[in-house]
Simulated scan of single mutants.
Amino acid sequence: MSYSNILSTYKSGITTITVNRPKKLNALNKETISELHEAFKVADADRETQVIIVTGSGDKAFVAGADISEFADFSGEEGAELAAKGQEILFNFIENLSTPVIAAVNGFALGGGLELAMACHFRVASNNAKMGLPEVSLGVIPGYGGTQRLPQLIGKGRAMEMIMTAGMIDANNALNYGLVNHITIQAELLSFCESIANKIMRNSPVAIGKAIQAVNANYKTAVDGYQVEIEAFGACFDTEDFKEGTSAFLQKRKANFPGA
């Protein structure tokens, strides 16, 4: 499939989606958000894809925010619609995919860029990465889930400070805060993410999808995460992956999961 603002490539079980607007520091506009939705949808439906990595083109930015020129003249109603649609088709969509998504944060991840990274299941940063939510410096607040996911990841106090100061943190602080899982040099960022992806791909894709569902349930209002876990645990017993995994364990061999 051909895209104007992103690249999507597949190799050995991994689909890598790259935001490709380097002259705009990979800023998100409506078209890019729509293309990202489509690329993630296609990758998630592809049985050959077991892990998705998302990154930005060039060596300066993962995604340096939203394209402000698109909404500078919006009314309140239009702004709310922009946030609602963006959350639905991209940020919440990514968070709830059954295919694991790793954000390879290569440089600036600001505003909508950090919100994109936080929607992924976990994050790896290059050592030159800078992250922040600068929206209040523009007279607005994060609208793509930033006020919700940042406190979940780093705690309320640190999130409040980052949002209210509109400041950036570097990769080391992001690691200390728990915002990213690992730091590596930029030249090795994708290969490092691929090495983690290869570890993930040794395991049952069905069970991983169920685990994502159960973990996410803990952060949903009026949802009993323990009950979701119980039901997902039970559902695993009816899968071919469970039969293969337990048989392989008892037979002392490597499992070959069918993904069903």
Results as ranks from 00 to 15, higher is better:
Asp44His: 14
Asp44Val: 08
Asp46His: 05
Arg47Phe: 06
Arg47Leu: 08
Glu48Ile: 04
Ile53Gly: 03
Thr55Arg: 08
Thr55Lys: 14
Gly56Asp: 09
Gly58Gln: 06
Asp59Phe: 14
Asp59Pro: 12
Ala61Cys: 13
Phe62His: 07
Phe62Ser: 03
Ala64Cys: 07
Ala64Thr: 05
Ala64Pro: 02
Ala66Gln: 05
Ala66Asn: 04
Ile68Asp: 09
Ser69Ala: 15
Glu70Arg: 10
Ala72Arg: 08
Phe74Tyr: 15
Phe74Ser: 15
Phe74Glu: 15
Ser75Gly: 08
Gly79Met: 15
Leu82Pro: 07
Leu82Val: 10
Ala84Val: 12
Ala84Met: 13
Gln87Pro: 09
Glu88Ala: 11
Phe91Glu: 02
Phe93Met: 00
Phe93Ile: 06
Ile94Ala: 03
Asn96Thr: 07
Thr99Leu: 06
Thr99His: 09
Ala103Ser: 08
Val105Glu: 02
Asn106Tyr: 12
Gly107Ile: 10
Ala109Leu: 06
Ala109Gly: 09
Leu110Tyr: 01
Gly111Thr: 06
Gly112Thr: 05
Gly113Tyr: 02
Ala117Thr: 00
Met118Ala: 05
Ala119His: 01
Cys120Gly: 01
Val124Ile: 14
Val124Lys: 02
Asn128Thr: 12
Asn128Cys: 10
Asn128Pro: 10
Asn128Ser: 12
Asn128Met: 08
Ala129Pro: 07
Gly132Tyr: 00
Leu133Lys: 00
Pro134Val: 04
Pro134Trp: 01
Pro134Tyr: 04
Glu135Cys: 07
Val136Lys: 15
Val136Ser: 10
Ser137Val: 03
Ser137Ala: 15
Leu138Arg: 12
Leu138Gly: 05
Gly139Pro: 06
Ile141Cys: 05
Gly145Met: 06
Gly146Pro: 00
Thr147Lys: 08
Leu150His: 02
Pro151Tyr: 11
Gln152Pro: 01
Gln152Tyr: 10
Leu153Arg: 13
Ile154Thr: 10
Ile154Lys: 09
Lys156Met: 11
Ala159Thr: 07
Met160Gln: 13
